[in-house]
Simulated assay, not measured.
Amino acid sequence: MPNAATLIELDERIAILRANLSELTEQAAAYSGAADEDRAAERISEQQAQLDELLKQREQLAR
């Protein structure tokens, strides 16, 4: 049986990353200029990678 505290912690971290991604996407839409767009895309990519890893961990724990 998965540790409930661990699942709750993962769920909280997942929620934070999803909120971050939403905010970064909104910010990226407002940027103008290649350097700003590149920086935004890099931050979005990093956050998405972290989210993917946490979702993978959560899925494994929930089994």
Rank of each mutant, 00 (worst) to 15 (best):
A34C: 00
E59C: 06
T6D: 12
E12L: 10
D38W: 07
R58W: 04
N20H: 10
D52T: 15
L61Y: 12
Q48E: 14
N20M: 08
R39D: 08
L54I: 04
E37W: 05
D36W: 11
A19M: 08
A30S: 12
G33I: 04
A29S: 00
E12I: 04
M1S: 13
A29P: 01
A49Y: 01
A5C: 07
Q27T: 05
Q57N: 09
E53C: 04
T25H: 08
P2E: 06
L17T: 02
S45D: 14
E26N: 07
L10V: 00
A15H: 03
L10Y: 11
A30H: 11
P2V: 07
R39T: 05
R63N: 07
E23F: 06
E53P: 00
L55Y: 00
E23L: 13
I8R: 13
E12M: 07
A40H: 03
L54E: 01
E37S: 10
G33D: 04
L17C: 08
L21A: 02
E37M: 14
E59M: 13
L51Y: 09
E42W: 10
Q57L: 12
A49I: 01
R43W: 05
L10G: 01
E53L: 14
A34R: 07
A19R: 14
E26M: 02
A28I: 02
Q57G: 02
I8D: 07
Q50G: 02
T6L: 14
A41Y: 08
E37L: 15
R13I: 00
S32H: 05
R58T: 01
L7A: 05
N3H: 11
D11M: 06
A35T: 08
L54M: 11
A30I: 02
